[in-house]
């Protein structure tokens, strides 16, 4: 199972749904981050001009993914940034620890082919699972 994402067309009437995958949890988180921003803009047009570091932790990996995507949405509004590059490190001790570097640039409607604004990550059909082959898969529905 390689890192990637698929938009789940027609899964939800008024919003955005995607499935993200990765060989490792870190890859899964990277893929989900990219899917989130691909829903908002053409990430292929983003330059890695600004870099932000994110640190999060949670006992449950699904809530950590929820927090991760929510933090990215927060940065989109608070810092006015769109991200196209995600480098995630995840370790599990007593709880999951995430350290990530994300790169992108200030939102520019003229260059970024903007799509729909993400309001928040829902818990609707939200799940993170480890597959039989050892890979990781998540389903996410974003309110737009």
């Amino acid at each position: 199972m390689t890192q990637g994402y698929t938009f789940l067309e027609d899964r939800v009437i008024s919003d955005l749904a995607f499935e993200a995958t990765g060989d490792t949890p870190a890859e899964l988180f990277q893929a989900a981050g990219l899917a989130l921003f691909e829903g908002m803009a053409d990430t292929g047009r983003l330059q890695p001009r600004v870099r932000k570091e994110i640190r999060l932790r949670h006992a449950q990996i699904d809530q950590l993914l929820h927090d991760w995507l929510s933090e990215l949405i927060y940065l989109k509004d608070a810092a006015g940034l769109l991200f196209g590059e995600f480098s995630v490190q995840l370790n599990q001790n007593t709880e999951w620890n995430l350290v990530a570097t994300v790169k992108g640039e200030p939102i520019d409607p003229k260059r970024h082919a903007l799509r729909a604004d993400a309001k928040g990550v829902t818990y609707h059909q939200f799940e993170v699972v480890q597959t039989e082959t050892g890979g990781w898969k998540a389903r996410v529905v974003v309110d737009i």
Binding site: Q63, I73, Y74, D77, A78, K119, G120, Y123, H124
Partner: peptide, 30 residues
């Protein structure tokens, strides 16, 4: 706008874990 969206996000998280304390179960996490 993002202000209200964040408040909803913050409290969904709070409620998601607080429900146990009040013995409430719901058919949909949302």
């Amino acid at each position: 706008r993002g202000f209200g969206h964040q408040i909803a996000t913050d409290y969904l998280r709070v409620f998601d874990s607080a429900m146990k304390k009040y013995g409430i179960t719901v058919r949909d996490r949302q």
